[in-house]
């Protein structure tokens, strides 16, 4: 290498160290958060027929973060992954329209437990070697809040859950986490799992031309059986019930009325 090429070489090297290369994002298809879900009369489940389905809101935030990282020049590829029925193609297409480069759908007709899902992610990680896996902190259907932590455990890598800020420094990331006592900052080595909280960002809207463009982007399907994951014991869901409803109480006219009502209940 000539001496004149050296500075460019080191500049390119330092750029390279800034880069996380590949980001893998999980997109779960869930009942839209605006839908008021109802338990079926026979208690066998929750009514999902004809109900609007969307990307889990936390996953949309995870994807938005991945796209911003890429747009800052800190990553070169964003892959979205969904595990579910063929219907999840819709959510992956939306993810592609938002800006993801390609999509993977692991198809299964039976719902999977969180640990099995984490094992699916692990299998895809083995194939794709991402430097960062961005998931939502929880899926708003089952509210499990497990998959990211489980994946980090079996992968043997760091986890930064409930993230509200992510910044890269070479091979590490500083992540601010929303915890009960405030905002915690941790430093993690890459590769790692980060799960998105609501305040990480505000996801972009998808524009029509992007939807058209997304149709040409690759969407690979892999049957769950092909991955050969070991299935753990599952927690059986035996019956579903609506929650106890709070009854509407009384209305008072003014502040003295409110004080009287509170005194009545022994609260003042």
């Amino acid at each position: 290498m000539s001496l004149r090429a050296l500075p460019v070489f080191f500049w390119a090297q330092s750029l390279r160290r800034q880069t996380v290369e590949k980001i893998l994002v999980g997109l779960k298809r869930v009942v839209d958060y605006n839908v008021r879900v109802r338990v079926k009369n026979d208690g066998s489940g929750v009514e999902t027929d004809g109900v609007k389905m969307s990307i889990n809101p936390f996953d949309e935030i995870a994807l938005e973060e991945a796209l911003r990282i890429k747009e800052r020049g800190e990553a070169s590829e964003v892959i979205v992954l969904s595990i579910g029925t063929a219907d999840s193609q819709q959510q992956l297409r939306t993810g592609l329209a938002m800006g993801a480069d390609r999509a993977i759908l692991v198809t299964t007709d039976e719902p999977l437990d969180p640990l099995s899902r984490a094992r699916v992610f692990q299998e895809i990680i083995n194939r794709e070697s991402p430097d960062l896996v961005l998931l939502g902190k929880q899926a708003i259907d089952e509210d499990n809040n497990q998959t990211g932590q489980m994946l980090a455990a079996i992968w043997g890598r760091p986890q930064a859950t409930f993230a509200s800020e992510v910044a890269f420094e070479g091979n590490t990331a500083k992540v601010t986490r929303e915890v009960d006592s405030g905002l915690e900052t941790i430093e993690i080595d890459l590769p790692a799992v980060v799960t998105a909280d609501l305040r990480l960002n505000e996801p972009r809207y998808v524009k029509l031309p992007d939807i058209m463009k997304a149709k040409k982007k690759p969407l690979d399907e892999i049957a769950l059986g092909e991955l050969g994951i070991e299935r753990p014991p599952v927690i059986n869901e035996s019956s579903f019930a609506p929650p106890a409803v709070r009854q509407k109480g009384i209305m008072v006219e003014d502040v003295p009325g409110l004080l009287a009502a509170l005194k009545d209940k022994g609260l003042l």
Binding site: L115, D143, Q149, M150, V179
Partner: peptide, 23 residues
């Protein structure tokens, strides 16, 4: 089921090879 437990327990569960009952 605080941010402390939500962060920690699924990682414990996965190391033990089981799913978690959340909440």
């Amino acid at each position: 089921s605080t941010t402390f437990g939500k962060d920690l327990m699924p990682r414990v569960a996965a190391l033990l090879g089981v799913n978690q009952v959340s909440d």
